[in-house]
Design a protein around this nucleic acid. Sequence first.
DNA 1: CTGTGTGCAAACTCTTTGCATAAGT
DNA 2: ACTTATGCAAAGAGTTTGCACACAG
Lengths: 138, 138
Amino acid sequence: MADAVTNVETRLRDCGLRPTRQRVALADLLFAKGDRHLTVEELHEEASLAGVPVSLATVYNTLHQFTEAGLIRVLAVESARTYFDTNVSDHHHFFVEGRNEVLDIPVSNLQIDNIPEPPEGMEIAHVDVIIRLREKQR
Amino acid sequence: MADAVTNVETRLRDCGLRPTRQRVALADLLFAKGDRHLTVEELHEEASLAGVPVSLATVYNTLHQFTEAGLIRVLAVESARTYFDTNVSDHHHFFVEGRNEVLDIPVSNLQIDNIPEPPEGMEIAHVDVIIRLREKQR
DNA sequence: CTGTGTGCAAACTCTTTGCATAAGT
DNA sequence: ACTTATGCAAAGAGTTTGCACACAG
């Protein structure tokens, strides 16, 4: 796994971020297991369990820095908590109401057609499709 | 406008909500001008300007009651504030990053194909497409 | 009258900030 | 050494809650 760590360090450096212990640890957790969507709280918890006691404020800072660097992005759900997504490409999500749970949409050929022109002077940064789910009534 | 007020009252009653002064006033503001997306703060401000000094807590309560009744819905954006949309049908939005502004997507024939099957026991409550905009770099 | 709704202020949750300490280069 | 990052605790923003008073039916 030394390689993985090295890659993370390089990746951080390329973004102009010093590969500190905390940032490397958080990046490892974020990127080691494929695409993830996590809240600050969740990542903080994971870091603690992994034996890297990072402060909450640092998790906030770090995730925002990663977001600015384009490594991760913020997910648009109407929950109180902010979800960060390690997959920055245009892709889509299920969001389970009530449970406040985000699920990846599996191998989807979901397609959006006729995306409208943005207003003058604006360009499209990202397209999000959120399919909101509820528990089926019997 | 007496008719409009009557309609609002009936509408509230049909949802099992007593048409109180505050609820009627808020519903009027919400539904008088076509589709809107407002924050609690904004609606509160409007009510005050309209000469109906409603408390913030009541605006929160009322908007949630309206949401439960299906009159309005919560909009999924990753902003700190919650946006409520008076249009409860599946339709779509521009969201201007930085400015935290929600725009309706104009007369769009935007179309989504191959919507994936929801997981076992779940059904689709709503589909949201959010096209995130940024100011175009010169 | 009786039950609901409203207003206020306090409580809560998530997030940000200020500043002293620690770590990276 | 010099600069940037971290941690802590306090502050901030948005939202919710508890309870006394007011209003609708």
